[in-house]
């Protein structure tokens, strides 16, 4: 009985030893047989030897076609990515409604067109990491002592009528905050009201805030983010290699500070 139990135990020990050994052997073999993962080759990801970029060039300051050429933040970004990949770049100016079909049907390789990441399109598209966040921002005068959104109770808040900024004001009111609403026809007017001391804060999108502040350099203001609306580059879902390369190139531009320079140039 004791001998049988001892045999059973030694068999179990052997089994315990065999499992990790087999796993180690499999790992070694896998290392030998499967090469280390390498980045995809540019020539296979972009077989035409160029990047064709779809962009709606009617949307300044991201892209605008002035008749002779296209210019804007998205144009510079696409050029910088192509330079990182050492590929020539070609732009196709396509209206917004046609952009996604152009990508799906292979007319273009990538879309760089102030596109917000849209979860509803993720069955067809892959997005890179975001290159700009155009969410709503709360702008206040730089010398405003108030420190956060909650201190705005009873404050006069300026915003563009019937915009997402108004939606934000409505959310605060539904949460019990009392707000004096100042709706304006244009978002710039909301910032004018703040600058002229006729409002305590303004809600606009990040692009509007940056453009206004760069045009009104003598005025000191600061802003904090309220929502996130990330812009990203889109590729067709089956082009994983191209997506990996473009995303890596964008990462390089972010790390090198080149993306920040492009954004500062246009906004």
């Amino acid at each position: 009985m004791a001998a049988a139990a001892a045999r059973k135990l030694s068999r179990r020990k052997a089994l315990y030893l065999a499992i990790p050994m087999a796993a180690a052997l499999a790992a070694v073999l896998a290392g030998v047989l499967v090469p280390l993962e390498r980045p995809p080759s540019i020539s296979s990801a972009f077989p035409a030897g160029a990047i064709v970029v779809g962009v709606d060039a009617s949307y300044p300051p991201f892209a605008l076609d002035d008749g002779d050429s296209m210019r804007g933040l998205d144009i510079d970004l696409a050029r910088a990515i192509a330079a990182e990949l050492d590929l020539p770049v070609r732009f196709l100016n396509i209206g917004f409604y046609a952009l996604h079909d152009a990508l799906i049907s292979g007319q273009v390789d990538i879309l760089v067109s102030a596109l917000r990441i849209d979860p509803a399109r993720m069955d067809d598209l892959r997005y890179t990491q975001s290159y700009f966040d155009n969410g709503l921002v709360l702008v206040r005068a730089a010398d405003d002592p108030l420190s956060d959104v909650n201190t705005l109770t009873n404050g006069r808040i300026a915003y563009e009528y019937a915009s997402s900024a108004e939606g934000q004001v409505r959310v605060w009111e539904e949460n019990g905050q009392s707000i004096a609403r100042l709706p304006y026809e244009l978002p710039q007017y909301a910032l004018d009201a703040l600058r002229l001391g006729q409002a305590d804060a303004a809600i606009v999108d990040a692009t509007t805030a940056r453009l206004y502040l760069s045009a009104q350099r003598e005025w000191q203001a600061r802003y904090e983010r309220l929502t996130h609306e990330p812009y990203a580059i889109a590729l067709r879902i089956d082009r994983a290699d191209a997506w990996q390369l473009v995303d890596a190139a964008l990462e390089t531009l972010i790390e090198s500070g080149e993306l920040a320079r492009i954004i500062d140039k246009w906004l």
Partner: peptide
């Protein structure tokens, strides 16, 4: 009636 305020002006 306009649903928005007139553009702000320097007072």
């Amino acid at each position: 009636e306009n649903p928005w305020l007139p553009p702000p002006r320097e007072s």
